[in-house]
């Protein structure tokens, strides 16, 4: 009984430790890595430019549906004037950081896990090591740094396009005075809401990209070999990243709300 419970627990503990070491090593490789700006640029392109369409599309639909649902509920109490507050606070505090992170995991994180997994599988990572190149520094460090920059930016874009979506459904479609909507938006959001928003975005970026890189990097230690190991690693990367995002969201919210 103890053994059946203990072994997965120990494995979980070991995995967490290894991932922590891996992340620390990646950051420690910053001064040792040459031509980091170039790699960073590529990572920003992968996580930023390439994921921009999905962020904008999901963002506008989230805003549209928030506007519709919010208007429907608030209309019952005759408080449509609060629609801007509802849409903006939902987006800034919760939906922006969480949905943007989930979308980025789906598009950039999964690709990252698969790419690094294949590089492990075809001995490219071993080749880097034999050349005296830090494989974490070359492959992971630029991605982690990019995540810290890109996730808050994507979240901000998600929130902005979402606010516009809320305006479209609330004002353009349902006839709320635009001035009422936008002034409610401006009144509702405070600096600490934005702090929460960006703290969440940065944390999610770091943790998801670290998880996806880690799963790819150690794809050979998981179940199966070859292509199956890579596919298993990618699945683990995406699933665990999403779970982590939602769990951390809860933790950060409770910490920041009760301060």
């Amino acid at each position: 009984m103890l053994a059946t419970l203990g072994r997965p627990f120990l494995r979980l503990l070991g995995g967490m430790g290894r991932m922590a070491c891996f992340t620390v090593r990646s950051f420690a490789a910053v001064p040792k890595t040459r031509r980091l700006p170039r790699r960073l640029l590529r990572a920003i392109f992968e996580q930023g430019t390439r994921c921009l369409p999905v962020i904008l599309i999901v963002g506008i639909f989230t805003g549209l549906v928030l506007g519709l649902q919010g208007h429907y509920v608030l209309n019952r109490f005759g408080s449509e004037s609060l629609l801007g507050a509802l849409v903006s606070l939902s987006l800034v505090r919760e939906l922006g950081p969480v949905l943007a992170a989930l979308m980025l995991v789906g598009q950039a994180g999964s690709a990252l896990a698969a790419e690094i997994g294949i590089q492990r599988n075809s001995e490219q990572i071993a080749a880097l090591e034999t050349m005296g190149v830090s494989s974490e520094g070359y492959l992971v460090t630029p991605r982690l740094l990019a995540a810290l920059i890109v996730f808050p930016m994507q979240t901000a874009l998600f929130v902005l396009i979402g606010l516009y979506g809320g305006y479209l459904s609330g004002s353009a479609m349902l006839g709320l005075e635009p001035g009422v909507y936008w002034s409610a938006v401006e009144k509702a959001v405070e600096a600490r809401d934005l702090t929460e928003c960006f703290v969440k975005a940065g944390t999610f970026g770091l943790i998801t990209i670290a998880m996806c890189s880690y799963q790819g990097f150690y794809a050979h230690l998981g179940h199966g070999t070859g292509a199956r190991a890579v596919s298993a690693a990618t699945t683990r990367a995406v699933v665990l990243s999403c779970v982590l995002v939602l769990a951390l969201d809860d933790v950060i919210t409770s910490f920041l709300l009760h301060r």
Binding site: I118, Q119, S122, E123, Q124, A126, A127, T130
Partner: peptide, 10 residues
């Protein structure tokens, strides 16, 4: 080191 699989960056 020359790998059996060449280990080129594809």
């Amino acid at each position: 080191f020359l790998f059996q699989s060449n280990a080129l960056f594809d």
